[in-house]
């Protein structure tokens, strides 16, 4: 078994390669945050200023909170207030700190068959889409974006169902790919939309309603529940994320000339 003799060292090298040198912490974040590209601006600066290598686990909001609840990450950065508060009430984290917000935008076919462009409010735009039975792609994955979408449907007084309403159960990027393929309407966070490269025939059709604002909050995981949690690093990261330096970087981050995130952390 010459082959095995050749391969065995790889196996052991892999097993041994778990210990890292510098201080690291893990943070679960939503796909919308990671896909926006902001992480690639912030992480190197965080490492430079604090010496902490932040390892990102890019997942949906539900899974991000679940990883925190299981003690598998040191902090969570998500945008779904109701779910965050329920998570905190269960004793999974120490507190909730608002960091920044971005906003959702309604994306749709350039021809806008439902006439959502002329709506006054986001809920009206949704009502137009439902009335026109125009194809609409929903994340359908219990993510923050999905929850925001459901809130808008209920504000419009509509229970979305039927052939035109397609719940794909996937991340933002995959859902946008689907919408591009179907020429359908979709609710997206602005960041993912702007950096999304497969826009096909889609355009931004509605924006600006405060109902579309999307608050990101930082949630350190409860170290009393899981002693393995790196609470010190999580605290340092929180201090950095709420600092003036972070404010400058977050407010200054642009895609296609547009500001994506608005820093709104309150100093303690």
């Amino acid at each position: 078994m010459k082959l095995l003799k050749t391969l065995l060292p790889f196996a052991f090298a892999t097993l041994a390669a778990s210990a890292a040198a510098a201080e690291t912490m893990k943070m679960s974040v939503t796909t919308s945050f990671a896909n926006s590209g902001l992480a690639e601006v912030l992480l190197p600066e965080i490492e430079k200023d604090t010496g902490i290598t932040v390892e990102l686990l890019v997942v949906g909001t539900g899974q991000a909170l679940e990883l925190g609840a299981n003690g598998d990450v040191d902090a969570v950065l998500v945008h779904s207030r109701a779910a965050e508060e329920k998570w905190l009430a269960a004793g999974n984290g120490t507190h909730r700190r608002e960091i920044m917000y971005n906003d959702f935008v309604v994306i749709g076919p350039a021809s806008d068959p439902a006439g959502a462009r002329s709506a006054e409010k986001a809920a009206d735009a949704f009502a137009d889409i439902a009335n026109a039975q125009a194809a609409f792609v929903s994340r359908g994955d219990d993510s923050g974006t999905h929850k925001a979408e459901l809130k808008l449907w209920s504000a419009a007084g509509i229970e979305p169902s039927g052939d035109w309403y397609k719940a794909v159960g996937q991340g933002m990027g995959a859902a946008l790919n689907t919408a591009a393929g179907l020429d359908a309407y979709i609710l997206s966070d602005r960041a993912t939309w702007l950096s999304f490269e497969n826009k096909a025939g889609l355009e931004l059709v509605f924006e600006g309603d405060p109902a579309l604002f999307n608050q990101y909050a930082y949630l350190p995981v409860n170290a009393e529940k899981y002693p393995s949690v790196n609470a010190a690093a999580a605290e340092k990261l929180e201090a950095w994320l709420t600092s003036d330096k972070a404010k400058g970087l977050i407010d200054g981050y642009q895609i296609a000339g547009q500001q994506l995130f608005h820093f709104n952390a309150v100093a303690e």
Binding site: T14, L15, A17, S18, K26, E55, L57, A69, N70, G71, D72, Y226, S228, V229
Partner: peptide
Amino acid sequence: FSRSGPLGVLGLLFTPT
């Protein structure tokens, strides 16, 4: 291998192992 799981103490989650 989750921290809340039976083998969580090994700290192997999110590693190549």
